[in-house]
Design a protein around this nucleic acid. Structure first.
Lengths: 145, 145
DNA sequence: TATTGTTATACTCTATAACTATA
DNA sequence: TATAGTTATAGAGTATAACAATA
């Protein structure tokens, strides 16, 4: 069976991302959140008063998609809004939300350890910087190398 | 602005995958296919007579989701089915499909080059093997290293 | 009994456009 | 005029369960 995709970097990247994300979601299931919710909660907890738009900007999520996401977190009592001015709100984590963030943090750290453990020690540093080079908005050329 | 996710491997993996996938889809737009269609077409073209189930197994796509996907490729005249036995069909690429595969192959190779070009030469080998270690179903432990 | 393909369905995530109310 | 948030909507992609026909 010939798999013409096996040696494609982009393909391996997608499979690795999909698989590890699924693993993380299984871990997070216990707390009733998905990885996106977890990311937003973490971001709010470490940036008290951050706006919905700013979160979207950092995480690469459209403003329009942030609205129902934050609304869900608010309904569950994990997050509260405080008006900054007439049009924007600062988001904060509630005490319940803080408990959830603690659980999420532990879970994500465990997940991270699990990922890192699969990579030979000697490759970790190179992997890390190569990965960042792929998506970080640094200038890059189309030349072969 | 504190980004608590920036140093998480899983997060970088997801962002890199999402970004590069979006780039590939833009490139493939010219041929009216998305990356999933492209993967399936490539797989069929190099494995004439492969079944729908087998493709799903290799690419990690549910049988139930393969059905409409293949149906779409068939409607567009890119793929044909030939009965193997009463319940399974072997898939083949038509001449039109072969032209499309040629375009896709070129596009994907260009995309690959673009990805590789972002990674320092000295990191490429380590990146490649580390990436495979993450999703390839090899045994791994939970230990720190 | 197990397998191939199918249907139905639902959920997550993403993308766009248009609207409101503020600044 | 630009920005924050919202609404509506559509499209990918993925997941599960159940079914018919066949092996």
């Amino acid at each position: 069976m010939i798999d013409p995709l096996q040696n494609l970097l982009g393909y391996a990247l997608r499979r690795a991302s999909a698989m590890t994300l699924a693993e993380l979601n299984v871990r997070l299931e216990a707390f009733g959140v998905r990885h996106v919710d977890a990311s937003v909660l973490l971001l709010i907890s470490q940036n008290d008063g951050i706006t919905l738009s700013k979160i979207g900007e950092i995480l690469g999520i459209q403003r329009a998609n942030m609205t129902p996401l934050v609304a869900r977190l608010e309904e569950r009592g994990l997050v509260i809004r405080a008006p900054i001015d007439g049009r924007s709100h600062g988001l904060s984590v509630t005490t319940t939300g803080a408990d959830c963030v603690a659980d999420i943090t532990t879970t994500m750290n465990d997940h991270e350890k699990s990922l890192i453990a699969r990579i030979p020690l000697s490759h970790r540093e190179a992997f890390r910087s190569a990965l960042d080079a792929l998506w970080t908005p640094t200038h890059h050329t189309e030349s072969g190398d």
